[in-house]
Design a protein around this nucleic acid. Structure first.
Lengths: 213, 213
DNA sequence: CACACAAGTTACCGGATAGTCACTGAAGGG
DNA sequence: CCCTTCAGTGACTATCCGGTAACTTGTGTG
């Protein structure tokens, strides 16, 4: 019989929690040192275990890198879903989606990996991540096009606008520190407000986010 | 006596040209593969020489990486000079400076290294590059503040605005290809117009850059 | 032609690090 | 109390790549 009313994680769950912990810690190291510069010894050290222990949870360094990218893309997908669901026009959908994405990336996940270096992944793993990324970018571009159609965004090149927003968001992982004065929420709100204002058909006359005042 | 009216480069000049060629090619490889993932064999191969040949022109891989960053920062400095010189207010200074910077980065230099990974450089070399980068960022932030004072930019957080613009610009090196349909000039003009519109106190009602129409 | 010297090559060394393997210690069941 | 299982360790191997050294080729000069 199960004791403690099944509130304690069983073996399977503990295994999965440890795997998640490895992925998150690895993501930070990959992000800061680059995928080749990051060492498994370093990841292991931060988790207080030996490198060999990691191999009970991941098959290889590549497998780990792949898992990091998959998680990041999964978060991106969910945020896009939310944006498409809740936004009332193209611009709003983008704002909701991107600010959620940014918040998750620098908040919950704590500055994860985002930049896919050439040759860091190979074969079907590389193909899969690139396909996910392309989907994400295509979806975002569609939202820009939608915004142009519905009049919330002014006439501009959707692909370029998509890349501009993506750059502004992704770059945050290069300078943001959770120990600084700004929370993830603060940054996400203020940055997205400012960046999307450049696309808006009718830009607000002032910025409302807390950071700006 | 000198023949060909001194139009031929002498030994010193050839040496310097080769060194520059190495730096540019290395910058691309560093940018795409990360500083640890890039191999000197790869750089040498692209230049059609052997790895050992590189060592006549650079002392070490670190030395080469350092030179890449120094060149990038030197270009940034010059573009900021030009912006401060020619712009009539804070916003214009930023627009001129940043579009020049972007044009140089993806045009002349052909997508160079921009992202400084943790521990990629060490000691005084790291200190120097970080100091140059901090100067650059501080200068940009000052221009945002100037824009707010002179009324060309609306009230916002200068540091965040600076990071937003920097992200939009730096991210270009991740997707831009000189072989694509857009020239470096096209991209620089259109991207800066869009990104800085988010800061403008009086945003234009339409975008004029060629790409957008 | 002989010489000097610069440019570049091939072959190698050594250090760092991904990945493996035999072992240890702890926990649970009979 | 032993036996099994499994998380984790330390020591090892293999490989990749930065860096070096001895050698070769090419070029300008007297």
């Amino acid at each position: 019989m199960s004791r403690w009313a099944n509130t304690l994680p069983d073996r399977e769950e503990v295994l999965e929690m440890k795997r998640k912990a490895i992925i998150r810690e690895a993501a930070k190291v990959f992000n800061r040192r680059g995928s080749h510069g990051a060492t498994l010894d370093d990841v292991a050290l931060r988790l207080g275990v030996s490198k060999a222990a990691l191999y009970r949870y991941v098959q290889s360094k590549q497998d780990l890198l792949y898992a990091c990218h998959e998680e990041a893309m999964e978060i991106a997908r969910e945020c896009m879903d939310k944006g498409e669901d809740e936004g009332r026009n193209g611009l709003e959908k983008i704002q909701i989606g991107m600010s959620g994405y940014l918040r998750e990336m620098i908040g919950t996940m704590g500055v994860p990996v985002l930049i896919l270096e050439e040759n860091a992944l190979t074969g079907t793993q590389a193909d899969h991540i690139i396909a996910l990324r392309d989907d994400f970018e295509k979806r975002m571009r569609r939202l820009v096009e939608e915004g142009i159609s519905d009049g919330s965004i002014l006439t501009l090149n959707p692909k370029l606008a998509m890349f501009m927003l993506l750059g502004a968001v992704h770059w945050v992982t290069k300078w943001y520190s959770p120990d600084g004065p700004w929370t993830a929420e603060d940054v996400a709100e203020a940055l997205i407000e400012m960046a999307t204002r450049g696309l808006a058909a009718h830009p607000s006359e002032r910025l409302t986010a807390g950071i700006h005042n």
